[in-house]
Design a protein around this nucleic acid. Structure first.
Lengths: 154, 154
DNA sequence: CGGATTCGTTGGTGGTCCCAACGATAGAGG
DNA sequence: CCTCTATCGTTGGGACCACCAACGAATCCG
């Protein structure tokens, strides 16, 4: 397989592993974004859920969870927070009384805009060492790997 | 800032964020590696600590934690596990009685070799969609971002 | 009409990362 | 020598993320 790596010292052999470097960079990115939107009073999933609700209008929780790959259990907590802050409304769906129709409020849209701006600023900081062209190449490569993931599910 | 993203629908605007894609890919990578070395009976940090101990011979725990950026608290647990399995030995350092001199056993070296092979196999699977040249380019870009992280600490 | 499925919710587990405090030991300065 | 400071290993705790099991209620399907 990878005979080139066998000559490296043990620790470097791990620290040069794609999974290792990916993990470190991703952790840093998550931290930067978390700090940025924490300044707005939200967490990563609050932002993501808010965005999904905003885009897909009145939507049931189960469907919501599938869109962003979030566990239904965790979604409950996030929606509770968002609803308590008045960013989101849960209403019973008259056409299917099992479902909750989730909707964004104007305050939620404003919050979403602030979070999105903060998240994009954090990402600019994360990718600061890279030129725009390099960022595009990086994203292209990452998307190829991420696409593989989606095919596995199908 | 990034005026191109403002035209995207809310959810896509998040899901195309480098931090988002990085997080997804990193999570998948971590999962693949974790599953691979779990088959050997170890976890990610067991593998990393084993490698660091192997490379840096008799080494104190604090120094060990600094090398791999692992919290001393978590290191205690990992070393307890490794020692219980006979992969590692903790001996008092006669030159500084605060320190533990940590050493790998032959069984530990064998375990390390198995874990390293498994981790590299998992990484091959993760990067399967990419050609060797593309993998090099990806790692180069990631290293540039990771390097930034190290400078911030200095 | 009855069985299977979906919905929201509650409960719990494990992993990663980080911080605070403690007794014990070592080193530096007076 | 002796205090002051720092480091070492350890314990305890917390926050966030990812994931799974089970439950009553409601719906769908055969």
């Amino acid at each position: 397989m990878t005979e080139r790596a066998d000559s490296l010292p043990a620790l470097q052999r791990i620290q040069t592993l794609p999974s290792w470097v990916l993990g470190r960079v991703a952790t840093r990115g998550r931290g930067l974004v978390a700090a940025a939107i924490a300044h707005e009073g939200a967490k990563m999933w609050h932002h993501a859920v808010l965005a999904a609700v905003s885009e897909y209008g009145p939507i049931a929780q189960a469907e919501l969870g599938r869109r962003i790959s979030l566990d239904p259990k965790d979604l409950v907590g996030v929606l509770n927070d968002l609803q308590a802050e008045g960013y989101v409304v849960r209403e019973p769906d008259p056409r299917d009384r099992r479902k909750n129709a989730v909707t964004v409020t104007p305050e939620g849209e404003a919050m979403l805009a602030r979070c999105a701006a903060a998240a994009e600023r954090a990402n600019d900081e994360l990718l600061a060492p890279l030129s725009p062209a390099e960022r595009e190449r990086l994203m292209g490569l990452l998307r190829r790997i991420g696409a593989e993931e989606l095919e596995q599910r199908a």
